[in-house]
């Protein structure tokens, strides 16, 4: 089923999307490795959904290009992609199994195969008892699982999931996580967007942090988290840290200061200098969490609110 030979499932090349005067995506360039879980993170209206829509062929870039599964035109490989949008709707009067089969057939499956796969998925998601019920009878969580099944039914090798965990209870979050990990084991690529940094951190191999349509940070999680955060409780004020080498940023609340340290710089040398400048009562050194990185990169920026297709 896997037809692409490149090591990258998706390549954005200076991809730009404008809606009127608003630049929703600004020359995004990135490569998404095959067989990985890749996260799109960023504040609301950053351009994540626009990027995803371009990726699945719903929207066309204004300029630049995108290559998906080695195809220059996404529509050629649509049947290899599974897309789960952020807001999830169902045909309320359709039976659950028919709904899943319908999307399988739209992706080129024969009816018999689609029915068999739909039933297997329903069993896997523990919804076999609901197979013949109408979608309107499902709870929100169940509805999302059915949506996910419709995304998976044709065995896509590239899955694009926009906020797949929103609205799910912890049990179902685990179900979806395990599905994603299973797909990756099969060498499929999963691209997801999420607001929950802990999830991105624990699930994604790599992420791109998008803000105001631009890629602010991009790379493997380990690379992004490289660099320490030093917490220092001391008797002095923030000026103590002026001109310190290796410090990227400093925040101080009361007597507690948080220092973002350049990954290339030695933390021990830094601490020695701080001890020389002030009386330290407590200190702690950790790797930066994705959440902290997100706040650091986006925190001061204005959250964009827009009325264009990008959510």
């Amino acid at each position: 089923m896997n037809t692409n030979n490149s090591s990258h499932s998706v390549t954005f090349e200076k991809t730009r999307k404008k809606f009127g005067t608003l630049v929703a995506l600004d020359k995004l360039s990135l490569q998404i490795p095959r067989g990985s879980v890749y996260g799109f993170i960023g504040p609301n209206g950053a351009g994540k959904t626009t990027a995803m829509r371009i990726l699945v062929g719903i929207s066309k870039p204004t300029s630049g290009s995108i290559k998906v599964l080695d195809a220059d035109d996404v529509t050629d490989v649509r049947h290899l992609i599974g897309y789960l949008p952020e807001e999830k709707g169902l045909y309320k009067r359709m039976r659950v199994v028919d709904y899943i089969v319908y999307f399988g057939r739209l992706n080129g499956m024969r009816k018999r195969d689609a029915v068999a796969k739909a039933k297997a998925l329903l069993s896997e998601f523990q919804l076999t008892d609901w197979e013949k019920e109408k979608c309107q009878a499902l709870s929100k969580g169940m509805g999302q699982k059915v949506q996910l099944m419709a995304t998976l039914v044709h065995d896509p090798i590239l899955m694009v999931l926009d906020e797949p965990f929103s609205g799910l209870d912890p049990v179902n979050v685990e179900v979806v996580r395990s599905i994603i990990l299973d797909k990756v084991k099969e060498n499929s690529t999963v691209i997801l967007s999420t607001h929950i940094m802990e999830q991105a951190e624990s699930l994604c191999d790599a992420v791109v942090l998008i803000n105001k349509g631009k890629a602010v940070l991009e790379g493997p999680i380990d690379e992004i988290r490289k660099g320490d955060v030093v917490s220092v409780d001391h008797d002095g004020d923030i000026s103590v840290f002026d001109g310190l080498q290796g410090v990227v940023s400093v925040k101080q609340v009361g007597r507690a200061a948080t220092l973002q340290v350049d990954p290339e710089y030695d933390v021990h040398t830094l601490l020695k200098t701080i001890f020389e400048r002030t009386r330290v009562t407590q200190f702690n050194s950790n790797s930066a969490s994705l959440h902290e990185i997100f706040i650091r990169e986006v925190g001061g920026s204005e959250v964009v609110s827009q009325t264009t297709p990008d959510a």
């Binding site: 062929g57 719903i58 807001e87 709707g89 169902l90 739209l106 992706n107």
Partner: peptide
């Protein structure tokens, strides 16, 4: 209706 329930988005990922 399909637009407001976002169903159309799923359909458009499979169809022109």
């Amino acid at each position: 209706e399909e637009k407001s329930t976002k169903l159309v988005e799923v359909l458009l990922s499979d169809l022109d």
